[in-house]
Protein backbone atom coordinates (compact mmCIF):
# COMPACT_ATOMS: atom_id res chain seq x y z
CA UNK A 1 0.00 0.00 0.00
CA UNK A 2 2.68 2.48 1.06
CA UNK A 3 4.47 1.59 -2.12
CA UNK A 4 1.68 2.95 -4.32
CA UNK A 5 2.60 6.16 -6.07
CA UNK A 6 -0.92 6.63 -7.35
CA UNK A 7 -4.04 4.54 -7.63
CA UNK A 8 -6.94 5.07 -10.03
CA UNK A 9 -10.12 3.11 -9.59
CA UNK A 10 -13.14 3.14 -11.87
CA UNK A 11 -12.19 6.31 -13.68
CA UNK A 12 -14.88 7.35 -16.13
CA UNK A 13 -14.66 10.47 -18.26
CA UNK A 14 -17.55 11.70 -20.34
CA UNK A 15 -17.75 14.69 -22.62
CA UNK A 16 -20.87 16.43 -23.76
CA UNK A 17 -20.67 16.63 -27.55
CA UNK A 18 -23.69 18.59 -28.74
CA UNK A 19 -26.64 16.69 -27.29
CA UNK A 20 -24.67 13.45 -27.27
CA UNK A 21 -22.76 12.24 -24.24
CA UNK A 22 -19.42 10.70 -25.28
CA UNK A 23 -17.63 8.38 -22.90
CA UNK A 24 -13.89 8.69 -23.45
CA UNK A 25 -12.64 6.68 -20.46
CA UNK A 26 -14.77 3.68 -19.43
CA UNK A 27 -13.70 2.58 -16.00
CA UNK A 28 -9.94 2.80 -15.92
CA UNK A 29 -8.07 1.09 -13.07
CA UNK A 30 -4.38 1.82 -12.84
CA UNK A 31 -1.94 1.57 -9.98
CA UNK A 32 1.61 2.83 -10.31
CA UNK A 33 4.23 2.08 -7.68
CA UNK A 34 7.02 4.41 -6.62
CA UNK A 35 9.78 4.63 -9.20
CA UNK A 36 7.98 3.01 -12.10
CA UNK A 37 8.46 3.89 -15.75
CA UNK A 38 5.16 3.16 -17.49
CA UNK A 39 4.17 3.56 -21.13
CA UNK A 40 0.56 4.04 -22.13
CA UNK A 41 0.26 2.71 -25.66
CA UNK A 42 -2.78 3.21 -27.83
CA UNK A 43 -4.02 4.49 -31.15
CA UNK A 44 -5.04 8.02 -31.80
CA UNK A 45 -8.38 8.97 -30.21
CA UNK A 46 -8.25 6.13 -27.69
CA UNK A 47 -8.26 8.52 -24.72
CA UNK A 48 -4.54 8.70 -23.90
CA UNK A 49 -4.36 12.46 -23.52
CA UNK A 50 -7.56 12.52 -21.52
CA UNK A 51 -6.04 10.00 -19.13
CA UNK A 52 -2.83 11.98 -18.89
CA UNK A 53 -4.72 15.18 -18.06
CA UNK A 54 -6.43 13.40 -15.20
CA UNK A 55 -3.15 11.92 -13.92
CA UNK A 56 -1.62 15.40 -14.19
CA UNK A 57 -4.46 16.96 -12.16
CA UNK A 58 -5.35 19.24 -15.06
CA UNK A 59 -8.73 17.59 -15.38
CA UNK A 60 -11.06 15.73 -13.07
CA UNK A 61 -12.81 12.45 -13.86
CA UNK A 62 -16.59 12.30 -14.19
CA UNK A 63 -16.61 9.25 -11.92
CA UNK A 64 -14.06 7.22 -10.01
CA UNK A 65 -11.33 7.85 -7.49
CA UNK A 66 -7.78 9.06 -8.00
CA UNK A 67 -5.38 8.96 -5.10
CA UNK A 68 -1.96 10.56 -5.68
CA UNK A 69 0.58 10.02 -2.89
CA UNK A 70 -2.21 9.49 -0.42
CA UNK A 71 -4.21 12.54 -1.47
CA UNK A 72 -7.69 12.24 -2.95
CA UNK A 73 -7.40 14.53 -5.97
CA UNK A 74 -11.19 14.81 -6.31
CA UNK A 75 -11.26 16.66 -2.99
CA UNK A 76 -8.69 19.38 -3.76
CA UNK A 77 -9.58 22.93 -4.70
CA UNK A 78 -8.10 24.90 -7.60
CA UNK A 79 -5.22 26.34 -5.56
CA UNK A 80 -4.30 22.99 -4.04
CA UNK A 81 -4.35 21.41 -7.49
CA UNK A 82 -2.06 24.18 -8.78
CA UNK A 83 0.37 23.46 -5.94
CA UNK A 84 0.27 19.70 -6.64
CA UNK A 85 0.96 20.29 -10.35
CA UNK A 86 3.84 22.54 -9.39
CA UNK A 87 5.52 20.23 -6.90
CA UNK A 88 4.57 16.68 -7.88
CA UNK A 89 4.21 16.75 -11.63
CA UNK A 90 6.47 17.64 -14.54
CA UNK A 91 4.79 17.86 -17.94
CA UNK A 92 6.51 17.15 -21.24
CA UNK A 93 4.40 17.90 -24.30
CA UNK A 94 4.60 16.69 -27.87
CA UNK A 95 5.13 20.25 -29.17
CA UNK A 96 7.52 21.28 -26.35
CA UNK A 97 5.44 24.30 -25.29
CA UNK A 98 8.34 26.65 -24.68
CA UNK A 99 7.61 30.39 -24.48
CA UNK A 100 9.28 31.83 -27.58
CA UNK A 101 10.19 35.17 -25.99
CA UNK A 102 12.18 33.58 -23.17
CA UNK A 103 15.60 31.98 -23.37
CA UNK A 104 16.21 28.42 -22.15
CA UNK A 105 17.10 29.55 -18.65
CA UNK A 106 13.97 31.70 -18.28
CA UNK A 107 11.76 28.94 -19.66
CA UNK A 108 13.10 26.49 -17.13
CA UNK A 109 12.71 29.10 -14.41
CA UNK A 110 8.91 29.39 -14.89
CA UNK A 111 7.67 26.58 -12.63
CA UNK A 112 10.13 27.71 -9.94
CA UNK A 113 8.51 31.17 -9.91
CA UNK A 114 5.14 29.62 -9.18
CA UNK A 115 6.85 27.48 -6.56
CA UNK A 116 8.01 30.66 -4.82
CA UNK A 117 11.76 30.08 -5.00
CA UNK A 118 13.91 33.23 -4.67
CA UNK A 119 15.38 34.47 -7.95
CA UNK A 120 19.03 33.67 -7.30
CA UNK A 121 18.23 30.10 -6.34
CA UNK A 122 15.89 29.81 -9.32
CA UNK A 123 18.62 30.69 -11.76
CA UNK A 124 21.04 28.28 -10.11
CA UNK A 125 18.51 25.48 -10.21
CA UNK A 126 17.52 26.22 -13.83
CA UNK A 127 21.15 26.09 -14.88
CA UNK A 128 21.66 22.88 -12.95
CA UNK A 129 18.85 21.03 -14.74
CA UNK A 130 19.85 22.41 -18.13
CA UNK A 131 23.34 21.04 -17.52
CA UNK A 132 21.71 17.80 -16.50
CA UNK A 133 20.02 17.45 -19.92
CA UNK A 134 23.25 18.40 -21.69
CA UNK A 135 22.43 21.97 -22.67
CA UNK A 136 25.12 23.77 -20.64
CA UNK A 137 26.13 25.82 -23.70
CA UNK A 138 22.57 26.76 -24.73
CA UNK A 139 21.45 28.56 -21.56
CA UNK A 140 20.74 31.87 -23.28
CA UNK A 141 19.39 30.47 -26.54
CA UNK A 142 15.81 31.18 -27.45
CA UNK A 143 13.62 28.30 -28.65
CA UNK A 144 13.87 29.38 -32.29
CA UNK A 145 17.67 29.08 -32.03
CA UNK A 146 17.43 25.45 -30.91
CA UNK A 147 16.76 22.21 -32.79
CA UNK A 148 13.66 20.16 -32.03
CA UNK A 149 15.61 17.72 -29.88
CA UNK A 150 17.24 20.57 -27.96
CA UNK A 151 13.88 22.24 -27.44
CA UNK A 152 12.44 19.03 -26.05
CA UNK A 153 15.42 18.76 -23.72
CA UNK A 154 14.75 22.28 -22.47
CA UNK A 155 11.15 21.17 -21.89
CA UNK A 156 12.39 18.12 -19.96
CA UNK A 157 14.67 20.35 -17.90
CA UNK A 158 11.68 22.57 -17.13
CA UNK A 159 9.67 19.50 -16.11
CA UNK A 160 12.48 18.44 -13.78
CA UNK A 161 13.14 21.89 -12.32
CA UNK A 162 10.86 21.66 -9.28
CA UNK A 163 12.14 18.13 -8.67
CA UNK A 164 8.70 16.55 -9.15
CA UNK A 165 7.92 13.00 -8.19
CA UNK A 166 6.55 12.17 -11.64
CA UNK A 167 7.27 13.09 -15.22
CA UNK A 168 4.23 13.03 -17.49
CA UNK A 169 5.09 12.91 -21.17
CA UNK A 170 2.48 12.99 -23.92
CA UNK A 171 4.01 11.77 -27.20
CA UNK A 172 7.38 13.34 -26.29
CA UNK A 173 8.99 12.15 -29.53
CA UNK A 174 5.98 12.81 -31.76
CA UNK A 175 7.52 15.91 -33.28
CA UNK A 176 11.06 14.56 -33.56
CA UNK A 177 12.89 12.47 -36.14
CA UNK A 178 13.88 8.94 -35.19
CA UNK A 179 17.48 9.60 -34.21
CA UNK A 180 16.61 12.60 -32.07
CA UNK A 181 13.69 10.68 -30.59
CA UNK A 182 16.11 7.94 -29.53
CA UNK A 183 18.34 10.46 -27.74
CA UNK A 184 15.36 11.85 -25.88
CA UNK A 185 14.29 8.34 -24.95
CA UNK A 186 17.68 7.50 -23.52
CA UNK A 187 17.44 10.66 -21.45
CA UNK A 188 14.11 9.39 -20.12
CA UNK A 189 15.71 6.07 -19.27
CA UNK A 190 18.44 7.80 -17.31
CA UNK A 191 15.87 9.81 -15.42
CA UNK A 192 13.91 6.64 -14.71
CA UNK A 193 17.05 5.02 -13.37
CA UNK A 194 17.41 7.82 -10.87
CA UNK A 195 14.15 6.51 -9.42
CA UNK A 196 11.72 9.08 -10.69
CA UNK A 197 8.28 8.02 -11.88
CA UNK A 198 7.62 8.45 -15.58
CA UNK A 199 4.35 8.00 -17.38
CA UNK A 200 4.83 8.25 -21.10
CA UNK A 201 2.03 8.29 -23.59
CA UNK A 202 2.64 7.12 -27.13
CA UNK A 203 1.06 5.41 -30.09
CA UNK A 204 4.44 3.98 -31.15
CA UNK A 205 5.33 0.52 -29.90
CA UNK A 206 9.08 1.00 -30.44
CA UNK A 207 8.97 4.05 -28.22
CA UNK A 208 6.76 2.37 -25.66
CA UNK A 209 9.33 -0.42 -25.37
CA UNK A 210 11.73 1.90 -23.54
CA UNK A 211 9.51 1.66 -20.49
CA UNK A 212 9.64 -1.23 -18.02
CA UNK A 213 5.91 -1.53 -18.07
CA UNK A 214 3.49 -0.99 -20.93
CA UNK A 215 -0.26 -0.63 -20.57
CA UNK A 216 -2.53 -0.64 -23.58
CA UNK A 217 -5.43 1.69 -24.02
CA UNK A 218 -8.13 1.07 -26.58
CA UNK A 219 -11.42 2.87 -26.79
CA UNK A 220 -11.16 4.12 -23.23
CA UNK A 221 -10.36 0.74 -21.73
CA UNK A 222 -7.00 -0.08 -20.13
CA UNK A 223 -5.33 -3.50 -20.30
CA UNK A 224 -2.02 -4.48 -18.78
CA UNK A 225 0.60 -5.43 -21.38
CA UNK A 226 3.42 -7.93 -20.97
CA UNK A 227 6.36 -6.72 -18.95
CA UNK A 228 9.07 -6.10 -21.50
CA UNK A 229 12.11 -6.03 -19.30
CA UNK A 230 11.19 -8.84 -16.98
Amino acid sequence: MDDDFFRMTGIIKRYQMGDELQTVLRGVNLTVREGEFVSVLGPSGSGKSTLMNIIGCLDTPTEGQYILRGRDIGKQDARQLAAIRNREIGFVFQSFQLLPRLDALRNVELPLIYGGMPEKKRMERAEEVLVRVGLQDKLYHHPNQLSGGQQQRVAIARALATNPSILLADEPTGALDQATGKQVMSLFEEIAQEGRNIIMITHDLSIARHARRVVHILDGMLTEGESLHA
Binding site: G56, L58, A78, R79, A82, A83, R85, N86, R87, F91, Q97, L99, L110, P111, Y114, G115, R158, T162
Partner: peptide, 16 residues
Protein backbone atom coordinates in the same frame (compact mmCIF):
# COMPACT_ATOMS: atom_id res chain seq x y z
CA UNK B 1 -4.42 30.64 -24.71
CA UNK B 2 -1.75 27.94 -24.90
CA UNK B 3 0.65 30.00 -22.81
CA UNK B 4 -2.03 30.33 -20.16
CA UNK B 5 -2.71 26.60 -20.27
CA UNK B 6 1.00 25.89 -20.00
CA UNK B 7 1.42 28.20 -17.03
CA UNK B 8 -1.46 26.47 -15.29
CA UNK B 9 0.12 23.08 -16.00
CA UNK B 10 3.35 24.39 -14.46
CA UNK B 11 1.48 25.32 -11.30
CA UNK B 12 0.10 28.83 -11.76
CA UNK B 13 -2.96 29.57 -9.65
CA UNK B 14 -5.90 31.35 -11.29
CA UNK B 15 -5.15 34.46 -9.24
CA UNK B 16 -1.56 34.49 -10.48
Amino acid sequence: TTEIGLRKALGAEPGQ
